[in-house]
Simulated assay, not measured.
Amino acid sequence: MSIDQNNQLNAYADLVKLYPDNEAYLRKYAELLLIENKQTTAAEVLRHLHTLLVNRGEHKQANTLATTFPQIGRIRNGIDPNDDRIDKLLPTTMQNSLWLRLHQHKVKEGHHLIQRGEHEETIYLVCEGELAEFIWSSDGKPVLLNLITLGNVVGESYLFNPGPHKSDIVANKDSIVAKLPRKKILAALEKNPSLKIALQQKSASRLINARISSSPLLQNVPLNMRKDLAEQSHTRQYAAGETIHKAGEKLDHVDLVAKGSAHFQLLGKGIFKELKTLGPGSLIGESEAVHIQGCPADMIANSNVTVVRIPYNAFRNVVEAHPPLRNTLIAYAEKNQLQIMSKLNEL
């Protein structure tokens, strides 16, 4: 550490003691600590700053801070739950209390509204109570995807892409839902672009969350963290034989194989050798080693592949905030390394 840096660090340490709630002093002090690799103290300062911003109601600034400094280990919070409501965007006739009463259905606690496999193309609006959406893990355990509350809808994705439901919708408590006629909703979408965009965004976010939740590595992460990852992620499609990543490519994201399969391959003596198959639920770029050193080998699509691309900082935030995930990922990385090394030895 240079004398000037040392003086600066000491000066800001004193300023923070005198003014513990000064945002500018806290941020500068944390940045100086990080330069000197004093990670623990820097994280404490940044967490204090994050808490201050949240308490002031400055959620946008708090979220930006958490994204910029993943060591905070905080997930975006303080978002107004009403921001997610759809009822205010519905046509006036569907907001009318009399119309809603005529289309309402009661769902007892623990009873299904929709069962997996059903061909139900109706949108339901929650008027009272709460619905839970869940899928089943490979070992037969339920994995919660969503809690659908007052003013929100369920079934919106099947409005755009009809087909059998891939999840179960159950009443978490005694609930009342209104069945929104498919034809009227489709007609309303043409007249109301805001409603169409809101439903499409909700459908896309829920689909990504379902894909994240289907991964055995991530399905035990708390729901709010999985939803946070989903909101910041997007999907990419690759055709069979297409290169997804080149060996040594630096990644600023984590890839989750959601559909199809890919493999790592190595060129030796003019012949491509497959090192490891990556099926649904596999992660690439999840470890610090891969993030820094790059992809361990060429990654090629075996078939048509759908990948969920998660920003690395968002992923690291979840790892910091949910320690059990760190242990899961360490074991996963070690297993992958052993498999690749074993294959290399064979070759």
Rank of each mutant, 00 (worst) to 15 (best):
G163L: 08
H50C: 09
S138M: 07
N172K: 14
A198R: 11
G129R: 03
L33I: 07
K259P: 04
N63K: 14
K17A: 12
L159Q: 07
Y312M: 06
R56Q: 15
L217D: 10
A314L: 01
A188K: 11
I185H: 02
N327V: 10
K60T: 15
M1F: 09
Y12D: 06
L15V: 09
A301G: 03
T64R: 09
T277D: 12
Y158H: 13
R56W: 08
T92L: 15
I340T: 15
H112Q: 05
F160T: 06
P296T: 04
I300K: 09
R309V: 15
T122D: 08
G163D: 11
T51C: 03
I300Q: 02
H59A: 04
T67R: 08
I114S: 03
N63Y: 10
I176V: 14
S214C: 01
N336R: 15
C295Y: 04
E121C: 00
T306W: 01
R47F: 06
I340G: 10
K196R: 15
R74P: 01
G281E: 05
D21P: 06
A331R: 13
R56G: 10
R226K: 05
I176M: 07
Q339T: 12
R27I: 12
L53W: 14
L180R: 11
R211V: 10
D139Y: 04
F264H: 14
H291A: 15
Q115E: 13
D168V: 05
N161G: 04
Q200P: 02
I72V: 04
H119P: 05
E36V: 04
P91I: 09
R326A: 13
G78H: 02
G73H: 06
D228P: 03
E286A: 14
Y12H: 08
E44W: 06
E346V: 12
L278G: 00
D139T: 01
N304Y: 01
W136M: 12
H263N: 07
E130V: 01
L199T: 02
Q95G: 08
L49Q: 14
A198D: 01
V153I: 12
K259R: 08
E120A: 08
G129H: 05
A188E: 07
G241T: 05
T67W: 02
A43F: 11
K259F: 11
G57R: 09
K196E: 13
S261Y: 07
D228L: 02
A24C: 08
G57F: 02
D14G: 08
E130Q: 10
Q115C: 10
P311F: 05
N302T: 03
D174Y: 06
L89D: 01
F272P: 03
G163K: 14
H59N: 15
S342P: 04
A13M: 02
T67N: 07
R27G: 07
Q5G: 13
Q237K: 09
R74D: 09
L217W: 05
N6V: 08
C295N: 10
Q5E: 14
H165K: 13
K202E: 10
I72M: 11
G140Q: 10
K227A: 14
N7H: 00
A13P: 05
P142E: 00
P162D: 07
N220H: 13
Y312P: 06
Q39W: 11
L325H: 03
